[in-house]
Amino acid sequence: MSGHHAIDLATGSVRELNAALHALGPDTNETLWRVSNPRGLHAVAAGVDAPVTIEIDGPVGYYCGGMNKHASIVINGNAGVGLAQNIMSGFVHVKGDASQSAGATGCGGMIVIDGNASARCGISMKGVDIVVKGSVGHMSAFMGQAGSLVVLGDAGEALGDSLYEARLFVRGTVASLGADCIEKAMRDEHRALLAAKLEAAGLAGSVDIGEFKRYGSARTLYHFHVDNVSSY
């Protein structure tokens, strides 16, 4: 029998919520958790490692869903700094906007942001897929190592600075590209990849893949060389 838990953070604490979530095993039947009155509290649903759904009604503070594994987290509101930082797997969906460093260092799973994401979205990403329906701020995907960042709106200054192998797709304008980040040709494999990410984000058929441009690493900074000195 699946359990339905309601946690009110106006009366309960984040510690109690997280302790209860951390106690869940991989085969738990307590699969639906509703969290009310988060009021911008930090570290809500951080460190969850169970295949459960957590719906949060309201805005959350820093690091909501941090290091998430397996859980699906839906935030009916805005998210503060470091949304789902270092996410390993699972799904995090923000119905509003996300502040700086959304998905920072994420290693897997998917983050969908219905609104805009601020600066450094996907910074040092290591395998996470991030889909932003709005725009992203400056230095997004800085030092991105793996995974994909899909932006339906515009990207701010220095997109993909010092990029490694993360794949970036932007439908709108890019204010500027960071060091060693270049526009690259969209081949069939990239269109297929983009389509798969959009489908996983629930956007299949609603977005024209042909409107996106792809950005990636020029790989010129992979080795120290005197000719690159101006980039260092």
């Binding site: 984040v14 997280n18 930090h42 951080a46 690091y63 941090g66 470091g82």
Partner: peptide, 14 residues
């Protein structure tokens, strides 16, 4: 921010 980061790491590790 560091204070909040420490809080998060404490939460993750109970």
């Amino acid at each position: 921010d560091l204070e909040i980061k420490i809080e998060e790491l404490r939460e993750i590790t109970d």
